[in-house]
């Protein structure tokens, strides 16, 4: 019944890290409790809220639904890894200028999803923003400002 512990070598925010854990451990808990990255958040454990969104090779994934044995050689990026990334910095600047957050718990996940959106669609329209961000819950409902910050970060007028 018990799965043996294995050692995984992951590239996280540009740094190679070794993690010893069972293969089924979600990346979320490996990042938070084995590596100590607190930016990735636990909200639902079922891929329903987006608080745990990280990038694997640049694509947003729900780390709570990503077992360690599925990561392979993919490069992992978390909110901590956006420092120094031009798009990441632009998003964080916009998030602060608009003052998006209330409690802030979901915001790292929101920014990671927005990052992926703007990489694919540099100047998204309202419908594209909503479609991309639909999976990220914000219980404080900061949605109006999430829209504004994404527009601002993409060089558009913040107010639609």
């Amino acid at each position: 019944m018990e799965e043996p512990v294995q050692t995984y070598t992951l590239t996280i925010n540009g740094t190679v890290q070794q993690i010893s854990a069972t293969p089924d451990m979600p990346l979320l808990w490996a990042l938070r409790q084995e590596v100590g990255l607190s930016g990735v958040k636990f909200g639902c454990g079922a891929g329903l809220c987006g608080a745990c969104t990280v990038h694997m090779d640049g694509a947003p994934v729900r780390s709570c639904q990503t077992p360690l044995n599925s990561v392979g050689n993919a490069k992992i990026t978390t909110i901590e890894g956006l420092a120094g990334d031009p798009l990441g910095e632009r998003l964080i600047r916009a998030w602060l200028d608009i003052d998006v957050m209330q409690c802030g718990y979901c915001q790292a996940g929101q920014v990671m999803t927005a990052h992926a959106l703007l990489r694919e669609t540099p100047k998204p329209n309202g419908a594209q923003i909503d479609a991309a961000m639909e999976g990220n819950l914000c219980r404080c409902a900061t949605y109006p400002r999430i829209r504004e910050a994404i527009r601002l970060a993409s060089g558009q007028e913040a107010k639609a």
């Binding site: 607190s38 909110i79 998030w95 998006v100 802030g104 920014v111």
Partner: peptide
């Protein structure tokens, strides 16, 4: 802007 907003967006362990 909230006094801790920048720290939250850096993923600092505040919660």
């Amino acid at each position: 802007t909230g006094v801790d907003s920048a720290r939250v967006l850096r993923g600092e362990p505040l919660f």
